[in-house]
Amino acid sequence: MPNDADIFETLRQELRRGSLILAVLGQLRSEHYGYTLRKALGDAGVEIDEGALYPMLRRLEAQGLLTSEWREEERRNKRFYRLSDEGRAVLDRLVEEWTRLNASVDAILKG
């Protein structure tokens, strides 16, 4: 039977899942490769492990929200990601939705 810590962890992950996509899209308004993207997110307080990040980047690229290109940097080939025009439009709408939802949930929690 799951204990309180397990239940909290499961709920925490569910809560974070949608927000992570938003954070990744937001961070990719400027170009990053995987490692620096993860570091930048971590520095901003959004920890994400590589096992979740890379498949997410591929999915978002397949959906047309990101573009990517391979370039050599620091003597190694790296794949650089950036928000596409379509991704930018989707992000703007998601931010609106996030702000509205955040305000509503905040009001409920404080009420």
């Binding site: 490692y35 590589e50 890379y54 190694r76």
Partner: peptide
């Protein structure tokens, strides 16, 4: 090839 190249870079960077 694409995925392993990307994971190689991540792993080496870590």
């Amino acid at each position: 090839a694409d995925i392993t190249a990307e994971l190689r870079d991540e792993l080496m960077s870590q």
